[in-house]
């Protein structure tokens, strides 16, 4: 564990080399949320039925928060992190370490996002302030769903990243899937805006567990049966996708060939 923390720390130090760049990284989500607020303000002004603007803004702040913690910033950025190492042969450097490959890659990657993760706490505080009263149980459920969001996203990243063993370049594949996830997970527009039948169908897929479900349990005091239904779906997809991703990774890693270290 200590070695993984060292890897995390090392990446973190690399980022600290450019403090001014760091500042921009912090400002970036604020600007993004600002533009979204302007856009949704326009929609709220013209909507046929009343739209709760504060609720929408908190939703999009939480989208930023969840994406930072569940590996989605920059459109599944962890996929590129894996893909680049496979394409350039840098993976060999990771393979010769007496460490597990995926956790060490994850630790390194998380180090680069450490500042975002620290800053995300202020986002959470902003949501707390905007929403007024959030029950402890809502926060606990949110953290549980956030964990499953992370597992599902991590699994999807491994699956797409593994394609690099075959095609080498996976940037466009990552983009394709990331666009699809953006709309189906509720990152682009809350799923509550979708027609009811489409929404019910979407709930059965793994995508809402990546974004909509964690935010939904935090924003609304949902009845226990609804939370349990969401939880069952999230757990089911987490197990299925994680098992499949690890299998695919293992098979492809055996075929991996590289020259030098």
């Amino acid at each position: 564990m200590r070695t993984y923390l060292n890897l995390f720390h090392f990446s973190f130090l690399t980022i600290l080399a450019y403090p001014y760049e760091l500042l921009i990284t912090v400002i970036e989500p604020v600007i993004e949320i600002g533009f979204l607020a302007l856009f949704w303000n326009m929609i709220a002004t013209h909507a046929d039925k009343p739209v709760d603007l504060v609720n929408l803004i908190t939703y999009f702040i939480m989208v930023q928060f969840v994406s930072i913690w569940s590996l989605t910033p920059g459109g599944l950025g962890f996929v590129n992190f894996i893909g680049y190492r496979i394409k350039t042969g840098e993976l060999s450097r990771v393979l010769i370490r007496p460490l597990k490959v995926l956790p060490s890659l994850l630790a390194e990657h998380r180090g680069y996002y450490a500042v975002d993760m620290i800053f995300s706490v202020t986002m959470f505080a902003a949501v707390f302030f905007l929403m007024g009263n959030i029950a402890i149980s809502q926060i606990v459920w949110f953290l549980i769903f956030l964990f499953f969001s992370f597992v599902i996203t991590f699994s999807i990243c491994i699956l797409i990243g593994s394609i690099a063993f075959i095609t080498k370049e996976i940037n466009s594949i990552r983009h394709s899937i990331s666009h699809l996830i953006r709309i189906l997970s509720g990152s682009m527009v809350p799923l509550t805006f979708f027609p009811e039948q489409t929404r019910d169908l979407l709930y059965l897929t793994p995508f809402p567990s990546m974004m909509f479900m964690p935010i939904n349990v935090l924003q609304n005091k949902l009845p226990p049966y609804e939370i349990l239904t969401f939880l069952t779906i999230s757990v089911f997809w987490s197990i299925i996708l994680m098992s499949f991703a690890l299998l695919v990774w293992k098979i492809n890693l055996k075929k991996y060939e590289a020259v030098g270290i």
């Binding site: 326009m42 929609i43 013209h46 909507a47 046929d48 805006f193 979708f194």
Partner: peptide
């Protein structure tokens, strides 16, 4: 989805 909720936007 947006225009399912609004008739016009600005």
């Amino acid at each position: 989805v947006i225009f399912g909720n609004v008739n016009s936007l600005a």
